[in-house]
Design a protein around this nucleic acid. Structure first.
Lengths: 235, 235
DNA sequence: AAAAATAACTTGTACGTACAAGTGGATGTT
DNA sequence: AACATCCACTTGTACGTACAAGTTATTTTT
């Protein structure tokens, strides 16, 4: 991934927030202070802050400053971030199917392109739990393009997206989603420990990446009884 | 609402896209062309394009240009925009309860602040249909602060948010959402024309506005069988 | 004919400047 | 004591410039 000045400051501040150096309610240094501290211009500082705003880390107040925001504790609706970043609780992950070459699923909401269908396909399935409670059944498909040694390797910090970013320089640039409330089928209900026929939230996602050939297709089945899916948006 | 140069161009381009003057796949004029056409700097043009990108109207290609994007036809998940803007189909709206002063609901996921609870509360309930199909039952609550003559007036173009913007200069600045799959209760099922107990998507939203006292609390119940809820996100 | 360099476009990053506008405390006036 | 003004801070908008970097067609070289 290309390194830029604004990304540097963005991640630097993000890490400080994540590690509690900057606590909820704290004001960040003013834009001018950040300018002098890091020897950059306000344009660049503001670009970094804009991104933090977009991701819900901070809140801006005209005339006052930028302060660290409370991020919601419910499972964040995965706009770009992965599951593990979005949750403020201990997440356990169980692989039901390890990454391997498999056929493209015929049941995804978003249809892969011709090129993707021609290529080999990688797939894996995981069960995500909060503590001991299974809350989400996750299936991922994507075309096998230049991802050397993907199969068999451990994920970086257990995160698929961190693995893509750090090992293959692949970044998520956007997503499309479709949400449905459905009856749980038997298999899904079994893994999520609910009765078959109970309502579950079905999320279909197509993630776009900086490699224009590569998209990631995810089908998520969530038990929202205990842990509703949440997200937030800021101008 | 304060008028700014970038907002001018943003809405101008948005209208052209919405009215089909700029079609899906068309390239917008280059940033430099927009600069000269509207006598503004590239900084301002880029700010406008950034907003269009964020709202999913366009897609940017480094070295090539910005082109109009296909917006998904499913009901857009209302991040900031209202229902009627987000749907590419004919939407009919039936008021089940006209706007009036009513008690705060006790069942909202997001709890109003003390100040809001002390104030009078306005409420209305609508049934949103695509053609003849009812797809969403919508309840809205908000504190009655300085909203003169809200009751009894027609909405601007049938849109609650447009009414807030144009008549009261109130703009949505962000939102928090919680999503749940639930069993439909009898009343909801009746209006949505589904069997009681069928799975429905329950969306709780707290909209933030530029008036710090004013938030809008919405509870949406969606029949996602025919029309899944969709949204998209772009970096 | 194929490959490499070039030129002319595009968007992306970053610099610097100026003033508008919101906030809150200090200061002065009534 | 209450109110108005001012000042020093903050973020918001908009100007202008420069160069990096991706894309594409043309030209030159091999």
């Amino acid at each position: 991934m290309k390194r830029t000045r604004y990304k540097e400051i963005e991640t630097l501040l993000k890490v400080k927030i994540q590690h509690g150096v900057l606590k909820v309610g704290d004001y960040l240094p003013s834009e001018n202070e950040l300018c002098t501290n890091f020897s950059i211009t306000r344009t660049t500082v503001r670009k970094a802050l804009d991104n933090l705003l977009k991701e819900g880390y901070i809140e801006k107040q005209h005339g006052k400053g930028s302060l660290v925001k409370e991020r919601r504790h419910s499972l964040g609706l995965l706009n770009v971030k992965g599951f593990s970043e979005a949750v403020g609780m201990i997440v356990n992950t169980i692989f039901l199917q390890e990454p391997a070459k498999r056929e493209w699923s015929t049941t995804t909401s978003f249809r892969p392109s011709e090129n993707e269908l021609k290529a080999n396909n990688l797939h894996f399935e995981r069960l995500r739990c909060v503590g001991d409670d299974p809350v989400m059944l996750e299936n991922n498909w994507f075309a096998d393009l230049e991802l050397k040694n993907f199969i068999g390797q451990e994920f970086v910090e257990g995160s698929f997206f961190k693995t893509l970013s750090q090992r293959y320089l692949i970044e998520i640039t956007g997503s499309e989603q479709e949400l449905r409330a459905e009856y749980a089928d038997e298999r899904t209900a079994g893994y999520l420990k609910i009765e078959p026929g109970a309502p579950i939230l079905h999320i279909s996602v197509k993630f776009h990446t900086n490699k224009s050939n590569l998209n990631i297709y995810s089908e998520l089945y969530c038990n929202t009884m205990k842990y509703p899916i949440g997200n937030s948006y800021h101008l």
